[in-house]
Design a binder for these strands. Structure first.
Lengths: 169, 169
DNA sequence: CTCGATGCAAATGCTTTGCAGAAAA
DNA sequence: TTTTCTGCAAAGCATTTGCATCGAG
């Protein structure tokens, strides 16, 4: 995963997301092109702006936030286009759609062979990504025990981060 | 938890929710009365119908589903009242609000000292409740490691249940 | 009597869609 | 030239709210 404090047997995390490498961005663009090719979809300037902004973004952006960034590059792009482009990214498997309970959809880049869940501060909204193989394993085991073939899961931990707890006291 | 195959060290589950005992329903009603008392809220016939229907229900009901049941007892009750009453139940800690990704809020009875998560069949919508102490423990540990004080969590496993897999093959 | 609750309809907030004109292929 | 895409505004949906009226305390 694209993260900060990796290494060791602990969960790799990213308190603050970083940008992807230029090579990875290119590779994501190529995957998207291939998908569009396969589906007879067209590469327009608007799509290129939206997807490039998205691939260069970090964190968990809402359509609204994405629209602001997109309009810095092309003020004429409408919000329906952003919605439609994110839907395309989702369908092509290049973006995940997340819902953290505040009523808006947030999107994040889906990097291949990478999976993580979220720890969310209910006070300041900070999102920390985490990955825990032991939990993953227990989930699989549990699903199997109930006869389920697992496809995906949602695992979000809500609490108060250290900074907010300190501020409050 | 109100469940089927309990006992042992495995997760207690309820494939099919059962009704609560009359004693438990009464106790829930008393808790609600106490909450309303404390907050200067009034006990109206509509509220009594909605809360009684809810406490006697099983599973994870949407407002729409609840409204149908409520109107069997009093056809004049409006849906805003059901929304408002469920909000009251949520605030008083007697109901949990859940979102399983289909865009509607579902509610379930919050029985004290009971906690469970969900395994959802993406094909038929069956919801299986589960509880896993090991996962709970790992979550706490993980949150603490990131300086978070955990308040609540969302843990949903989506997959295909045994019956649907069989039907498909 | 008072003030909270109800029911209706209107408003809200996010997301989706219809359509005419624009632009890829 | 054909077909998809865009931008706008309108429509959808679940949920919330304003308000006149009702009814619990």
């Amino acid at each position: 995963m694209r993260s900060g404090t990796t290494g060791g047997t602990m969960d790799p995390v990213s308190e603050q997301d970083e940008a992807l490498s230029e090579a990875t961005i290119t590779s994501l663009g190529e995957k998207l092109d291939a998908y569009m090719e396969r589906h007879g979809l067209r590469s327009t300037s608007q799509r290129r702006v939206v997807t490039d902004v998205f691939f260069r973004s970090s964190g968990h952006l809402s359509i609204e936030e994405l629209l602001v960034l997109v309009r810095e590059r092309d003020p004429k792009i409408g919000y329906a286009t952003v919605y439609r482009t994110l839907k395309l990214l989702k369908e092509s498997g290049l973006a995940y759609e997340r819902h953290f309970g505040d009523g808006v959809s947030r999107y994040e880049i889906a990097v291949e062979d990478e999976h993580h869940d979220h720890l969310i501060c209910m006070e300041c909204g900070t999102i920390v990504e985490f990955e825990n193989d032991e939990i993953e394993r227990l989930q699989e085991e549990l699903a199997a025990r109930h006869g389920f073939k697992l496809k995906r899961h949602v695992h979000e931990l809500y609490g108060i981060c250290a900074a907010c707890r300190k501020r409050a006291s």
